Amino acid sequence: MRLGYAVGYWKQGPPPGALEAILEAERLGFESVWTAEAYGSDAFTPLAWWGSRTQSVRLGTGIAQMSARTPAATAMAALTLDHLSGGRAILGLGVSGPQVVEGWYGQPYPKPLARTREYFAIVRDVLARNGPVTAPGPHYPLPLSGPSATGLGKPLQSTVHPLRPRLPVYLAAEGPKNVALAAEIADGWLPFLFSPKANADAAAQLEAGFALRDPGLPPRSGFEVAVQLAVVPHADVEAAADTLRPMVALYVGGMGAREANFHRNVIDRLGYSDDCDRIQGLFLAGRTEEAVAAVPTRLVEEIALIGPPEKIRDELAAWEESVVTTLLVQGRADSLRLIAELLG
């Protein structure tokens, strides 16, 4: 099992102690560090800033939102980061949800699977630099044509040569079809709110995608499944769960609309639909504290490692036996040290 450290996205500002935790992760032998973006900080700038203080850890966007940038702009950022870091970049991409895509970026959300296919194809063409990049569309046509275009656009090739033959591109996915798509077109899958309880379904979805995998892509044996995993060592399990209940309540109740919340759907599939109804109802009614209190401890225990070190050690085995290949640990420096010790 490989280890990475997930810094996440910013809240009101830069997360306190982030650089110190990143340096500690590198010292402990963690293989990667990951940043994220929602509708505040971006994923690339902090990764470049903090990554400039590191020597060996790989630098991953977990995730960069596809609607935030055109495919070419995303590939440019990845190429730039890869050169500046000496070949340590990992490009993690995801579609996000309709509230962010349409409300924040002003981009259309429909047909996310088709858009993802097009996006990945263009990103890979830019990164490969085998010639001028063209794409038929309909979502990302290159060059642009039609009544809104001048007709002066022409196929272009990146002026920057890739530092290495292949920069890994991962796909964040939660729904079954999107998980299968990750196995079909990506170098790795970035699950969210994953539980070993869902391992059989995840394995089947990945197999469906591998059956369609382009033989020109790296073999499935090198496919990564890197999951963000909150780790909260604490003598009191309930107190440990309390630190994560607000996050679960936010994603179940407040991320997305009542009728379209892909994070909630993941928890539904774990068998918590009734709990999700209650959490979502309370959250959308503005009763946030009650929504947080309604998050069951057993749910937190399924998607995170919490409690005394010996309990975490026992529960870690289920993660090691799952499709997961890399744990992207979320937590304080003591969490990083504990996981490094348990897996050492």
Rank of each mutant, 00 (worst) to 15 (best):
L3P: 05
L3Q: 01
Y9P: 12
Q12M: 12
L19N: 08
I22L: 15
L23T: 04
L28T: 05
S32T: 13
W34K: 05
W34R: 02
W34G: 13
A36T: 07
S41C: 15
D42H: 12
F44K: 03
P46V: 00
Q55L: 01
A64P: 09
P71A: 02
A73F: 15
A73L: 15
L79A: 03
D82Q: 09
L84I: 06
I90S: 03
G92L: 04
P108L: 06
P108A: 10
P110E: 03
L113T: 07
Y119S: 07
A121E: 13
R129D: 05
V133I: 10
H139P: 02
L142C: 08
L144K: 02
G146V: 06
P147S: 11
G151C: 07
Y170L: 14
W189K: 00
W189A: 00
F194W: 14
N199I: 14
D201W: 06
A202C: 05
A203G: 09
A204R: 12
A204N: 14
Q205R: 14
A211P: 11
A211W: 09
G216Q: 11
P218Y: 01
V225I: 14
A226R: 02
D236F: 01
T243P: 05
L244K: 04
P246D: 04
M247D: 10
Y251S: 07
G253K: 01
M255D: 06
M255T: 09
G256A: 08
E259T: 06
D268H: 15
R269T: 08
L270H: 00
S273H: 11
D275T: 11
C276W: 01
D277T: 13
D277V: 03
R278A: 12
G281I: 08
L282A: 04
G286I: 08
G286T: 08
T288Y: 12
A293Y: 12
P309D: 12
I312Y: 04
I312M: 12
I312A: 09
L316P: 06
A318D: 13
E321G: 10
V324E: 00
R332C: 08
